[in-house]
């Protein structure tokens, strides 16, 4: 295995919720520009690992070293501002992004007639695509995607994956999956 310069270093992570241990002695180094697939069963701790990296939770013991990185994320839930339209949802998290650029990016995954509808009126799959575009338009060092293709059909999954790989080229990309074979790209790390 080639030597990697770790940008994200997870060391002996322990994490429990209400006495139920989710992560036990988990360690991994994730390098600059690396694509990593975190795979494991439901409840194995994949989402917890992403939350630890994003700084949304602290480990019970062990360390998470992210060395001042900027993150972007697609959460397990869409987490969109329901009253705002797709364009606003993309621009609201990135100050420097114009509406015109956001529209052009959205066009890659979402029909134009959906761009100016409140996202609460979009279908589940359409909301997911907005969440993906929002994350990809945000300038970050690492992109953490938690089951990003939930609710998308196979064609759209393919299209979205191509878009994600194009936008994150040269950046760190971490995706969670249930099965090891789900993605043919990246280094696979088993969780749980």
């Amino acid at each position: 295995m080639p030597q990697i310069t770790a940008m994200i270093r997870l060391k002996n992570i322990e994490k429990s919720y209400d006495g139920h241990r989710v992560l036990s002695g988990f360690s991994a180094d994730i390098g600059d520009s690396e694509t990593v697939i975190l795979f494991g069963d439901s409840g194995a701790g994949k989402t917890t690992l992403l939350r630890l990296m994003l700084g949304l939770e602290k480990p019970d013991s062990g360390s998470v070293d992210i060395a001042g990185m900027n993150f972007s994320a697609v959460f397990q839930e869409d987490r969109l501002c329901a009253h705002a339209d797709a364009v606003e949802n993309v621009t609201v998290v990135t100050k420097t992004l114009s509406a015109a650029v956001a529209e052009a990016e959205l066009k890659r995954l979402l029909p134009e007639d959906r761009h100016h509808m409140p996202v609460s009126e979009l279908s589940g799959g359409e909301k997911r695509r907005v969440a993906i575009v929002r994350a990809m338009c945000h300038d970050a060092d690492a992109y953490l995607l938690d089951e990003p293709f939930t609710g998308l059909d196979e064609d759209m999954q393919q299209k979205a994956m191509e878009y994600i790989l194009e936008k994150t080229a040269g950046k760190t990309l971490i995706i969670t999956a249930h099965e090891e074979w789900q993605y043919d790209k990246g280094r696979k790390i088993a969780v749980g």
Binding site: A73, F75, R79, C81, A82, A84, E88, V92, V93, K95
Partner: peptide, 24 residues
């Protein structure tokens, strides 16, 4: 709380948090 976490991750400024999350 999920939207507040999203704002934290994307480092949304207080003005945008107020307009897009708190106010609605």
């Amino acid at each position: 709380k999920q939207l507040l976490e999203m704002a934290e991750v994307f480092r949304m400024d207080p003005g945008r948090r107020f307009t897009y999350i708190y106010l609605p």
